[in-house]
Computed example of a mutant assay.
Amino acid sequence: MAGDVVLISGGARGIGEALARAHRERGDTVVVADLHPTADDQLQLDVRDPDAFRAVAERVVAEHGRIDVFHDNAGIAVAGTMPEMTRQHWDDLIDIDLRGVVHGVDAVYPLMRAQGFGHIVVMGSLAGILPVPSMVPYSAVKSAVVTMSRALRVEARRHGVKVTVVCPAFVETPLLDHINPGMRRTRANRVGLRLVRQLQGPPMDPDALARIVLTALPRNPETVLAPRPLAQLAVLGERLVPGVVRWASGLAVERYLTMSDKDRADA
């Protein structure tokens, strides 16, 4: 068996699919678990079910002997101003993007502790470091994910387990085309992608992000920011001149609230 044994939640599409592709190109053994598998060798997993997550992790160890790298990746995107949010926006986001991440840690971390090694890679977001208006629930949940990962990193290292949180800006994935899945639609469903392109430029290519992550992991960084230099400059601005960042965020909210459907057609 060549390379690492890698488990990826939410690995059938988007960033997870790109991570799986990059690991396989490196010669790793990859197990993909997803709510909607797209191949026969992928495992079905609802990350909201802690028992199902534990069963998947234990199956990987039973079949492959260990888990070297776990990408705690599955998630959804929720966007819109607070008046547009419903209880379902909050509940679904917390259940998948926060509790789902915790369920992954609960399933894999004890196995890695027992084997004495492993790397947990949590998919956070730049929105978890920079407060993003018009994405208040998403920013709040990702902030919790970032903090959890950083705190777990300190605890886990005494057991030989590494923890890294990945914080990208917007990435070109199906999430951008399926904002607020199964929920009441918001203006973000009509104009969100156009606004992203105005603020960031083209969303980041997921394969480029996967390459950045795999290149960084041997160095065991606490946080991986992408893309360069946009993410690094944004975080530096948040630390040094938060007032300027809030001013710029306010302009983005005004743009969001006044953007017309014609802008969407031009996207």
Rank of each mutant, 00 (worst) to 15 (best):
T164S: 01
G124R: 08
R158E: 14
R158C: 00
A156V: 05
S139E: 10
L126N: 02
A140P: 03
R150S: 08
G160H: 10
Y138E: 02
V101S: 14
D106E: 15
R150W: 01
Y109P: 04
K162Y: 11
V154C: 11
M123P: 00
H159E: 06
L126K: 03
S125H: 01
R157P: 07
T173K: 01
V136K: 07
T173R: 03
V165D: 01
S125N: 06
V165I: 10
R113T: 13
G128A: 03
V102W: 14
P137I: 09
L130R: 12
F117A: 15
R99V: 13
P131A: 09
V108F: 10
V165W: 04
C167W: 04
M123D: 09
V171A: 12
R150P: 01
L98M: 14
V161E: 13
G116K: 03
V121N: 01
V121P: 03
V154E: 13
V105C: 10
S125T: 08
A144I: 04
G124K: 11
I120E: 04
T164N: 03
M112G: 03
V108N: 12
L130D: 06
S143V: 08
A114I: 05
D97R: 07
D97V: 06
P168E: 01
C167P: 00
Y138L: 09
S134I: 06
P133H: 02
T173H: 07
Q115I: 08
S134T: 05
C167T: 00
H119V: 00
V154Q: 12
D106P: 03
V161W: 08
D97A: 12
S143Q: 15
D97P: 05
P133A: 08
V108H: 10
I129P: 00
K162L: 14
V146W: 09
L152D: 01
V105N: 06
M123K: 08
V171D: 07
